[in-house]
Design a protein around this nucleic acid. Structure first.
Lengths: 221, 221
DNA sequence: TAGATTGTTAATCGATTAACAATC
DNA sequence: TAGATTGTTAATCGATTAACAATC
């Protein structure tokens, strides 16, 4: 009874962060209340989809009125789990790791970077985003000390699998992978992959189609 | 007849870069030929989905034998449009822009970064990844000079919409947005959004469910 | 009450998957 | 030919959307 009564569809889960961001930006503009139409516009989706998505979480709006922005924000945060503390380690402090360590979108949403690790021990002690870079060898100790559940991999592709293996054996069950490399992990471990180049390739595909598009293309009788 | 005869489903397009990466990694290991089963494993999908996806591009395998790795790689590259040159500009050279400018996954796939722009003119002239940072004011001139079709936004959220507007008016029709901000653009302009924090939030949601999962959860009679 | 807007229903659409005929 | 594996079919599953009854 205390836990979410229903499973939330994966497509909906992926949009909850978008709604959260839209609600935050409404609050920044001192908007206290909004309709599904307004929120949908701010989030870049249509309102039917928004209402359907929210209906999976519960009934947090008022018919004829709309949604209380702060209340809905809290409910979505709670559903995602952002009301609890999430200690995170980042492994691989190159340009990208550096950017991630400084990324305010993490800290502002309940994620707390507890350690930055790099395999290159000559960088140990270097200060990045207020944290000293530590040796990768300390991973297991750090995971246990802080109860880290989420690991971020920002190493080159060649190192990523070894890092993932070490994370898993240290007890991490959720991995965010920025290395352009498919990781193999045991059942029960979640990996999400962010491939910067994939996104560019998908854009290129559509851009190419635009250029070769025939004027009478697009509709088939 | 020279252009792709069929429309490729969006879900398939999103996976083509993954297949391409898997094929590259097979080639690195001197694997010249593979079955759909092997390639699917390397790409992290099941083989039925892989074959279905490839069937949208054409018939590039041999029954009873499998796929020629190099030939298939070429066909996918061509379909995505990676056999042509894609000049790219990156706007916002903070930590993330810096990381993107140095990211080898771009240059190795037909993407050519022609300019790095930043609104902070005190940074003009600074050398990053072999390119001098230039003023944002030069955007339109650079787009025209190099025929830039794809723009990358790595600015803070507050600046992103203005950058997008400028890109659109300069003629860019494909934008990769790393700023945590929904962009509004005219019809015909493609925006893909990469939100580093969203991915972490989706992981947190699943991690949270793992912790609260009942032992007899998962199946309902 | 009248007007507005949610939450839900049901129809449609697209994606996934297993199975297998085609064929090397 | 016999064995292997693709490319396709058809069934299933999940996501999207429009419409509207419920209700503030």
């Amino acid at each position: 009874m205390t836990v979410s009564p229903t499973r939330i569809p994966e497509a909906t889960v992926a949009r909850l962060p978008v709604y959260l961001r839209a609600l935050n930006s409404l609050l920044d503009s001192d908007v206290r209340s909004c309709s599904s139409e307004e929120l949908a516009t701010a989030a870049g989706v249509n309102s039917a989809k928004l209402r359907k998505d929210l209906s999976h979480l519960g009934s947090y709006g008022t018919r004829g009125v709309g949604y209380d922005v702060e209340y809905l924000r809290y409910q979505i945060s709670r559903e995602i789990g952002l009301t609890q503390d999430w200690p995170v380690v980042i492994v691989g402090i190159g340009n990208l790791g550096h950017a991630l360590a400084n990324y305010s979108g993490f800290s502002s949403r309940g994620f707390r970077t507890v350690a930055l690790l790099d395999a290159d021990d000559s960088r140990t002690g270097e200060l990045v985003a207020g944290l000293k870079i530590r040796s990768f060898d300390e991973l297991t100790a750090i995971v246990h000390e802080h109860g880290v559940a989420i690991g971020v991999i920002a190493t080159p592709a060649a190192a990523a699998q070894a890092v993932a293996d070490q994370m898993v054996s240290a007890g991490i069950r959720s991995i965010l992978n920025f290395a352009p490399m498919v990781l193999s992990v045991p059942d029960g471990v979640d990996v999400r992959m962010v491939d910067l180049s994939s996104e560019l390739q998908i854009l290129a595909y559509h851009e190419q189609r635009k250029s070769t598009l025939q004027p009478d293309d697009g509709v088939v009788a």
